[in-house]
């Protein structure tokens, strides 16, 4: 399954990117595209549906210093 997700909020881009990559590796989720700024995180993710859900959930909680205020599917 493929999903594209977008999170908005206040991010430490480096921390969030590292966190997302580590989580993806743990959950056997492939990130085929990712962009991170101080206010937006977008990723195209490939994997089992349940695992994509877990990936999204962990990004919603995020690492320290990252606050998510909005989340949507963009594809």
């Amino acid at each position: 399954m493929v999903r594209e997700i977008r999170l908005t909020g206040h991010f430490d881009p480096e921390a969030l990117q590292g966190f997302a990559m580590a989580r993806a590796e743990l959950l056997a989720v492939e990130i085929t595209k990712m962009s991170v700024s101080q206010s937006r995180f977008e990723a195209r993710i490939v994997g089992e549906e349940a695992l994509l859900g877990m990936f999204e959930m962990s990004c919603l909680l995020g690492p320290a210093g990252c606050i998510v205020t909005g989340a949507e599917d963009i594809a």
Partner: peptide
């Protein structure tokens, strides 16, 4: 997720 085949990465 009882149906999920848990990947070995976890």
């Amino acid at each position: 997720h009882p149906e999920l085949r848990v990947p070995g990465t976890i």
